[in-house]
Design a binder for these strands. Structure first.
Lengths: 213, 213
DNA sequence: GGGGAAGCGGATCGACGCAATCCACTTCGG
DNA sequence: CCGAAGTGGATTGCGTCGATCCGCTTCCCC
């Protein structure tokens, strides 16, 4: 949390804080594609100042996403409480999508595959919880056969991408299609097996391409 | 079909054909964002030649998309045959998504809102058929309450965007999630009403933004 | 309160990609 | 064979983005 940084002059410290705040806002609004120039402008600071404090983008991203990443794993930690796994899964996914939609930078980091490895520990812990829930939901007969953790990642990409484009028109629209997708993943009468199963490597490749767009 | 163009010299006509073919391929692969430079290169022709034959992008797009647009409305025309509206709807959407996924330029034109008005007649005719099917499916109790034509557009955006990023990894993956979404839009026990209903104006605004990305 | 270190801003550079133009040259076809 | 039609692609102009550099300001300790 309190990383060991060399002590800064009072004004420099203040500017650093401003930069991190600006980056947090911009990353949240528009994803990790935002450039240093824009961050500097929003922080009311020259570009040089940003470059002096943060050598690379990963460094700035790390500073901006520390808290949101913690919030993400915390949400996952409280997902085991539901009596029925499916209910826990739904709640967890609603919360995760809300977090990712409110912070597109967090989305890029969490779903972006190896591109932003700083999120790896967080996503691994979440994947763990998720797999446990999925297995339980499957045992309890609620999860459609053939559906798995890979589908959750694709679902998150789909819903957050929609939210990205609908944000200024219908900020909460993503919930509508999250609902549709969840209902489609639930087991039910006359549900054919899903075609074209996915493996983890596929998901990784697709995520990488998606994040790069 | 056979538009009235001034007669061209034999070699010029051949080059025009090459350009249209190249544009068709490139638009299909990567959407309408492809530039004149690249079209010229793939056609084995100088940029100047492209600019001489096609004053603007819309003109080139029109030449490249005439056939695919016809195919699209033809598919819709044969969708009323199914005894049960829902079956016709599923089949129609499978066919439409296949067409749009195989031709991302067609997707951009068909879903892109006012940006590429050349597609308007086609999309209107399809929307007509679609609304009729949706109304019938609703009467027959298959369509989830609160779902409508606006959701179809969003569904197409979602599925084609996924296909765009998964194309090189799993070319047929879009069918998996089309299936999930369709199953989620079907009526069933315990299906809550969908939140955040959409209007046509919302869909238009979202489509415009999506197409611009 | 003075001086030197630390910090600052933003003009500026280079790379890149895309739209669009222009003209010396080639090719066609009557 | 010759003039009209057609051609290629270098080039210009524009906008974006990452990154650097240096003359000036501000801080803070002695």
């Amino acid at each position: 949390m309190t990383d060991r940084r060399p002590a800064l002059r009072r004004d420099a410290e203040r500017n650093r804080t401003r930069i991190v705040c600006a980056a947090r806002e911009l990353f949240a609004e528009r994803g990790l594609g935002v450039g240093f120039n824009e961050v500097a402008h929003r922080a009311g600071v020259g570009v040089g100042t940003v470059y002096r404090r943060f050598a690379d983008k990963p460094e700035l991203v790390r500073a901006a996403l520390e808290e949101p990443l913690d919030a993400l794993v915390e949400v996952a930690a409280r997902a085991d409480e539901a009596a029925r796994a499916w209910d826990g899964l739904e709640l967890l996914l609603v919360r995760i999508t809300d977090l990712l939609v409110d912070n597109l930078g967090l989305r890029d980091a969490a779903l972006g595959g190896g591109a932003w490895e700083l999120a790896a520990p967080a996503t691994e812990r979440i994947a763990e919880v998720m797999e446990r829930l999925l297995a339980r939901a499957h045992d309890e007969g609620d999860l459609r056969a053939g559906a798995g953790g890979e589908d959750v990642v694709m679902l998150l990409w789909l819903v957050t991408t929609l939210a990205e484009h609908a944000a200024e028109v219908r900020p909460a629209l993503h919930r509508r299609y999250l609902q549709v997708l969840l209902d489609g993943l639930r087991s039910g009468p006359g549900r054919a097996a899903l075609p074209e199963p996915l493996g983890p490597a596929d998901v990784d490749a697709i995520s990488r391409r998606w994040a790069a767009s």
